[in-house]
């Protein structure tokens, strides 16, 4: 697995979250998934994307802890390194 930088992960997560519906400029670290209308199934899909691209597994236990875009970025970065 090629090394990915936190910056790359952040960009990819923002791009993926934006693809679920919200405007990209609204997808910022502090934005909550609830405010973006990003639901639990979207987070499952985000999990599939990061698993395919970074080999990072997001488990069902992780999902309730992910409240904001930043939470997701931080967790994925911590597991990708």
């Amino acid at each position: 697995m090629p090394t990915v930088t936190p910056q790359q992960v952040e960009e990819r997560v923002i791009e993926a979250v934006a693809s679920f519906g919200p405007e990209k400029e609204d997808v910022v670290r502090d934005a909550t998934f609830e405010s973006l209308d990003v639901d639990s199934l979207d987070l499952v899909e985000l999990g599939q994307i990061v698993q395919d691209e970074y080999g990072v597994e997001l488990k069902s236990d992780d999902m309730p802890k992910l409240k904001t875009v930043g939470d997701a970025i931080d967790l994925i970065v911590s597991r990708a390194s």
Partner: peptide, 9 residues
């Protein structure tokens, strides 16, 4: 086609 309520299609 990009409102938050309409999912990618």
């Amino acid at each position: 086609m990009s409102s938050a309520s309409s999912k990618r299609d």
